[in-house]
Structure formats: C-alpha cells, structure tokens
Design a protein around this nucleic acid. Structure first.
Lengths: 355, 355
DNA sequence: TTGTAGGCGTTATCAA
DNA sequence: TTGATAACGCCTACAA
C-alpha cells in the first residue's frame, strides 16, 4: 500500500527533484533557470537527479502563472486555416509577426473566429492578440476580449476602440492603379472584388452589398477605384483565390466584345491571376485585348501572372510592425499604429485599349 | 501611501470579484464556469459585479495550472511559416488537426524547429505535440521533448521511440506511379525530388546525398520509384514549390532530345506543375513530348496542372487522424498509428513516349 | 551559495 | 446552494 503504487505515471515536480537531490526547491529552480548563483556541483547534481527521475524541466503552465506571461501571441483569423492560408499575404504577415515575436520567446497561437465563437478567444492563454479580421464583424468579439486587458493589435481593420491598427493606404493604392488604367485610355473597366463579408455572397457589386459589406480592405479598395471610375461595377467573389478570379473573369469577359470591359481591376493578385487565365481560355490576349491589374505584389508561383501590373504591399513588414507593436505594448510602452503604403509596380499586363 | 496607488492597472482577480459580490471565491468560480449549482440570483450578481470591476473572466494561465491542461496542441514545423505553408499539403493537415482538436477546445500553437532551437519546444505550454518534421533530424529534439511526458504524434516521420506516427505508404504509391509510366513504355525517366535534408542542398540525386538524406517522404518516394526504375536519377530541389520544379525541369529538359527523359517523376504536385511550365517554355508538349507525374493530389490553383496524373494523399484525413490520436492519448487511452494509402489518379499528363 | 516563506489565480473536494 | 481549505508547480524576495 505504499504511496508509490498510485504514482505510476505522475510526472515528477521540481520539488520532488529537489528533495531527491537534497536541496531546496528554490535551489533546484535556479539550477534550471540559471537565473541565480548556484555552484556547478549543485547544479549538475540537480540535473543528474532530474534526468534520473525523468523530470523534463519546469512545467510551462506553472511558470506561466507565476510569471504572468505565457509567451503566446494569438493570431485571430476569420476563416478556416485552409482558406486563410491560401492567401500568401496572410502567411507573409504571420511570418512577419513570428519574425519579431519569436526572438522574444513568443509563439503564435492560431485562433479562428468563426461565427459567434468567442469562447476560445477568451480562454486561450495568450499574452496578446493580433486580429487578422479585416472585418467589422470582429467588433463584437473585440468588445468581449478587450475586457481581458491584454494588448490588441489589428491588421487592416476598421478603427476599433482600444485596438492598435497596422493599416495600409488601400484607397490611395487603388486609386493609383485606377489612374494608371485611366491614363492608358481605359473607360470601360470592371472590378473583381474580394469577399465583402463573412457570408461570402457572390454576385454583382451593388450599392446594397457595399453598404452591407464588412471586409475593410475590399471596401477601401473599391472606394479608391471609384475615385477615378465613380461608376465602376463588377463582381464580388468568395475570396482571394485564383479559381474565384477565373470564375468572375469568365463571367465578365464571355460577352459580346462591345460590352466587354477593356480592363479589369482585380482586388488581389490571386484574383488577377484567375482573370488572366479566364481571358486566355476565351482567346483574349493580355494586355492586347484586356488589361489586368491586381493588388498585393505577392510572388505568385504562376509564371503567367509573374509580370502582373499591381501594387506591392509590404506584407511581411506589416506583420513585423504588428509584432513590434505587440512587444511594445507588452513591455508597457506606448505604441502607435502604422499606415503602410503600397508601391505601384508596373508589369506587362496593362496597355492602351484596342482602337 | 495607500495600496491603491500601485494598483492602477492591475486586473482584478476572481477573488476580488467574489469579495465585492459578497460571495466566496469558489462560488464566484462556479458562476463563471457553470460547472456547479449556483442560484440564478447569485450568478447574475457576481457577473454584474465582475462587469462593474472590469473583470474579464478567469485567467487562463491560472486555469491551466489548476486543471493541468492548457488546451493547446503544438504543431512543430521544420521551417519558416512561409515555407511550410507554401505547400498546401501542410495546410491541409493542419486544418485536419484543428478540425478534430478544435471542438475539444484545443487551439494550435505554431512551433518552428529551426536548427538547434529546442528551447521553445520545451517551454511552450502545450498539452501535446504534433511533429510535421518528416526529418530524422527531429530525433534530437524528440529525445529532449519526450521527457516532458506529453503525447507526441508525428506525421510521416521515420519511426521514433515514443512517438505515434501517422504515416503513408509513400513507397507503394510511388511504385504505382512508376509502374504506370513503365507500362506506358517509358524507359528514360528522371526524378525531381523534394529537399533531402535541412540544408536544402540542390544537385544531382547521388548515392551520397541519398545516404545523408533525412527527409523521410522524399527518401521513401525515391525508394518506391526505384522498385520499378532501379537506376532512376534526377535532381534534388530545395522544396515543394513550383519555381523549384521549373528550375529542375528546365535543367533536365534543356538538353539534346536523345538525352532527354521521356517522363519526369516529380515528388509533389507543386514540383510537377513547375516541370510542366518548364516544358511549355521549351516548346515541349505534355504529354506528347514528355509525361509528368506528381504526388499529393492537392487542388492546385494552376489550371494547367489541374489534370495532373498523380496520387491523391488524404492530407486532411491524415491531419484528422493525428488530431484523434492526440485526443486519445490525452484522454489516457491507447492509440495506434495509422498508415494511409494514396490513391492513383490518372490525369492527362501521361502518355506513351513518342516513337 | 543556499534555504525559507509566500503567493501567482484558479478550481476540486468536501463539509455545512 | 454556498463556503472553507487546500492544492496545482513554480519563482522570487529576502534571510541565513
């Protein structure tokens, strides 16, 4: 009936190691953390005993509590992982965050914010949260999460109380692209827009849809486009995927030549790539029969889209800025939002319209 | 000199809320967790007081310690996030894991296992770890991590003590593809291989490189291929990216026709897509001048690669299996590894060799 | 250089 | 239905 019987698989604790090594718990702690003076002899004895007992080091959970930090930054995505990561922009931003927070011993926790599921956001042991939402719908979650009193940083989100935003001049960059087309002489243009809201409803770009839209970058980009082409219409897609661009492109282009747009403004490079493929399928040459512009400047693996006229958004830099903001806020320093500017990158997919 | 001075931003604790509401801490706890009988009146009073004090709910860190669970599953990737997520297979597997562990209130922590950096693996407050490594190099980390006594699950890794593997019959599937080409009459084939090790050294597939290789699936796939083409050679790439396939393809194909392979066995669909692009650039038709097979069966956004002859690997299912294994192990149940089988999917990129 | 004491914020157990 | 008590495992002043 010895106590050992019930302790078969119980992981030993630091206290147990200390006891077995004949030192106090605090000494054993120092032996592991190296955060204080311990004689080499003592340390190695503790370590040896630990190895002997199969002790794998201090329990991170206990350490979290004691230190008041978990070393985890949450990344809140608004979609399934597959969808979120299909867009290289998101991955690049994530990488940027990790690039900055990693060296400070933080890891990234993936949190998906599916409809009405705030629980995980509230229960996750994160020190800070980065919102990839881009959607005003996040507002509801945010107000709940804000109460936790942890730093909140968003990337390209609409302004939210208590949230530091890392933004981008979507309007300006979109206007630049539109102006470029206008300067070339295009007068009949169509927009292939990103999803406008969580419902991912497709169809024409209508005033109603725009009014109900929640996806900040999509709305801002449209706004920028309309500074040049006030009446620009087009199609809403389900998201930034080549296949969606192909679908929308086909629908816009498979019409009599007289009604066909001479230029298409895709709201992402992935969409643009799909549009170009659609044009090719219909026997239309780019930029001869159709000019196409994108948005993002990601390095697309598709060679045909390699030389796309687009604006390059500093995605990794944006991630880094978000990471820096997180670290600053965690350190109790003041941090301010940043607004990045995308750079126009002329490619070979735009030219004056035919005749 | 009142105590309040120093407590400006201190988040209130459950105890503080309880005190203010005139109940015991345990009752307040129940009011939040709902894990016990509390009168409606009491609960609402507690909640009201909490709202009043700006208490955002129980601290997850403390909860982790008390419960002995953090609700976090670590995903160990062997690369930067950008590189790891460029391959849709990894994303799909991640999604599969999340699909299973998510409903059980677990989130995914991204851990990258860069050279010699075991620290984070050891310090992260995870309940279990899923290794995406695929590399025997992981062995070192594993032996350290194993001591933590948490469930360890790997996906397509070489057999490791104390690690449950979710595998795949790479050898069999690769042999199938090779046999398919052989049956069509191909005798001069070349392999475009995945990276063989962490160094991502490129060059010819040599015995030395193979012997030094650590990337399990790449080695296994090559082994399967050589069951049919014992002397099959080719090139090693830096990883599963279209651009790498393009580079390798160009190198293999841009030679006199007499030396040119009549078929290329790419070890991933992404690589195959690049090879096809390279063939197109060289004016070679697929499958007329060149047959190409891939591996993975991911839905590539590139339309030209859409109808690739390949084997479809159940990536999401593999992720789910890993997730289930994790949950089972966490529940203290026995769990066994699984070996999935990829399914041959004939496409339009293979045909008999010319003349 | 080492040990002592106390608490991080919560929840499980048990008794009232 | 509520409350008292005792951990969970560790770390950090501070004292020795």
């Amino acid at each position: 009936m010895s106590r050992a019987e019930g302790e078969v698989a119980a992981r030993p604790t630091l206290a147990a190691v200390a006891r077995a090594a004949g030192v106090s718990a605090s000494t054993a702690s120092l032996a592991f953390s190296g955060a204080g003076p311990v004689s080499d002899e003592t340390r190695s004895r503790v370590l040896a005993v630990a190895a002997d007992l199969g002790y794998g080091g201090p329990d991170p959970r206990a350490r979290s509590l004691r230190r008041g930090r978990s070393g985890i930054v949450g990344a809140v995505l608004e979609d399934t992982l597959s969808n979120a990561f299909r867009d290289p922009i998101n991955v690049a931003m994530l990488d940027g965050i990790a690039d900055v927070t990693g060296p400070a011993d933080n890891s990234l926790l993936l949190l998906t914010e599916t409809e009405g599921e705030h629980t995980r956001l509230l229960d996750a042991p994160v020190d800070a949260l980065v919102l990839f939402g881009c959607s005003t719908r996040l507002d509801a979650s945010v107000s709940t999460v804000r109460r936790r009193g942890i730093p909140l940083v968003s990337i390209e989100a609409p302004p939210m109380e208590g949230v530091l935003d890392i933004g981008e001049d979507n309007v300006g960059a979109s206007r630049l692209l539109a102006q470029h087309l206008h300067d070339l002489g295009h007068r009949r243009v169509a927009v292939v827009a990103l999803e406008l809201g969580p419902g991912r409803e497709t169809g024409d770009i209508t005033d109603a849809r725009v009014a109900a839209g929640t996806t900040w970058p999509a709305l801002e980009r449209l706004r920028g486009t309309r500074l040049v082409y006030p009446d620009a219409g087009g199609l809403v897609t389900r998201g930034s995927w080549t296949s969606e661009g192909h679908r929308a492109g086909t629908q816009l282009l498979d019409v009599p030549a007289s009604e066909r747009p001479t230029a298409i403004i895709a709201q992402s490079d992935l969409l643009a790539s799909g549009v170009i493929a659609a044009a090719a399928d219909l026997g239309l040459s780019v930029p001869g029969d159709l000019s196409v512009v994108g948005y993002d400047g990601v390095r697309l693996d598709d060679p045909r889209a390699a030389d796309l006229t687009t604006v390059v958004q500093p995605a990794v830099e944006k991630g880094r800025a978000a990471g820096r903001a997180v670290l600053a806020l965690l350190a109790g320093e003041a941090a301010t939002g940043t607004i990045f500017t995308s750079v126009f990158r002329p490619g070979s997919t735009t030219a004056p319209p035919r005749a």
